[in-house]
Design a protein around this nucleic acid. Structure first.
Length: 375
DNA sequence: ATGTTC
């Protein structure tokens, strides 16, 4: 008999139907992570897809801390705001032009004031109010339909209202924390160890910074559109949460905010606001944050011809909206066809009792980047 | 993901 502890793989609960688009490689990753030391429970959602260190679209409860399960964008999340701007006053071309102000971000004094006295102050204001790249965006949406008028009215939401959905995170801050500990995280950190304490403190600070970043992006967008933005909910989906029964890692799985979470669609599909009930304990208090990738970035370059007409078509959505993205590679990688069907993801979540649709939102202006000469 | 990657 050796002295190594008996290890049983964590229980894996998959909250998606047989018809869900789930890559085999993502399921392999899911079971691989379930076998890591100290892993207690794993939940996977219908947006599950392969990631760099493990699958995206899952929650992982462990009695060790694995920074690679959070990834570089610590604190990344989706925040939904209501804009007090009548739809008839939104002129798409003019508004899209004005949103270019988002490239600048918050001015340093505003940024510094926003993080003063918080954990995030250690990182400083550089980059606050900026979106970053990849799948991040700031989108003006219109409430398309109310599935639950009672909840919607409690939130002050009516059909035809304008909203803003912001997807961003901790920019260079979380990335620096993550790369700073590279090579040391392989077997995870034992809670209470120096490495764990240091990581958790930096993680918590990056999470505050990321949430502040989303608020400042919304402020910047509202200022550009000459209106105010009121927060409806802000649900992070890349983070670590200390629970009584262990350390909960969420990777592309949302922690609902006051029982609410956005489900991002964007480009060619509607987005949703979900009411998230307590749900089964096996779901680990988590829910999908978006449609999830159907094809990885490299695959998209083979699927979309790089001809002018195709690229121009991708700057309009099927809802008559605009996509502001001057980076051609990014435009291709983030095409609507790169993502699963958001409606199918939502139906699976509802079937398993993880969410109830409150409202659906159509994209009007999807702001990605307006910088010239990238890549 | 990234005050971008030798």
């Amino acid at each position: 008999m050796g002295n190594s502890p008996i290890r049983t793989p964590a229980r894996v609960c998959e909250f998606y139907s047989d018809s869900a688009w789930i890559e085999g490689r993502a399921v392999e990753q899911l079971h691989d992570v379930a076998d890591w030391a100290g892993m207690r429970a794993v939940a996977a959602f219908p947006d599950l897809h392969p990631g760099r260190f493990g699958p995206v679209g899952g929650a992982f409860l462990a009695d060790r801390i694995y920074p690679q399960l959070i990834g570089p964008d610590i604190g990344c999340g989706m925040a939904l705001f209501r804009l007090d701007l009548p739809r008839r006053k939104l002129k798409l071309d003019k508004a899209a032009r004005r949103l270019q102000a988002l490239e600048t971000g918050a001015d340093p004094a505003t940024g510094a004031a926003a993080i003063a006295g918080t954990d995030a102050a250690r990182f400083g204001p550089y980059g606050l109010g900026t979106l970053g790249g990849g799948n991040h965006f700031c989108e003006v949406q219109v409430v398309d339909a109310l599935a639950d008028p009672t909840v919607a009215s409690r939130l002050g939401l009516q059909a035809g209202d304008l909203c803003l959905l912001v997807h961003s995170g901790s920019r260079g801050q979380g990335a620096a924390v993550f790369s700073g500990i590279a090579e040391t995280w392989n077997d995870g950190f034992a809670p209470g160890s120096d490495a764990a304490e240091t990581y958790v403190a930096l993680h918590d600070a990056a999470q505050v910074w990321a949430r502040t970043n989303r608020a400042l992006i919304a402020e910047g967008a509202a200022e550009a559109l000459r209106c105010d933005a009121r927060l409806i909910c802000d649900a992070p989906h890349n983070h670590l949460e200390r629970r009584a029964d262990g350390w909960l890692h969420r990777k592309g799985a949302a922690a609902p905010d006051r029982g609410l979470a956005p489900l991002a669609g964007s480009r060619d599909s509607l987005s949703y606001l979900m009411a998230v009930p307590d749900g089964p304990p096996e779901a680990l208090g988590s829910v999908s944050h978006g449609a999830g990738r159907r094809y990885d970035r490299a695959a998209m370059h083979g699927r979309i011809p790089r001809v002018k007409s195709e690229l121009e078509a991708m700057r309009q959505t099927r809802f008559g909206g605009r996509v502001i993205c001057t980076d051609r590679d990014l435009l291709i990688e983030e095409a609507g066809s790169a993502y699963k069907d958001t409606g199918a993801v939502l139906r699976d979540l509802e079937t398993f009792g993880l969410a109830e649709e409150v409202a659906a939102f159509a994209p009007l202006i999807t702001f990605k980047t307006s910088r010239e000469g990238r890549r």
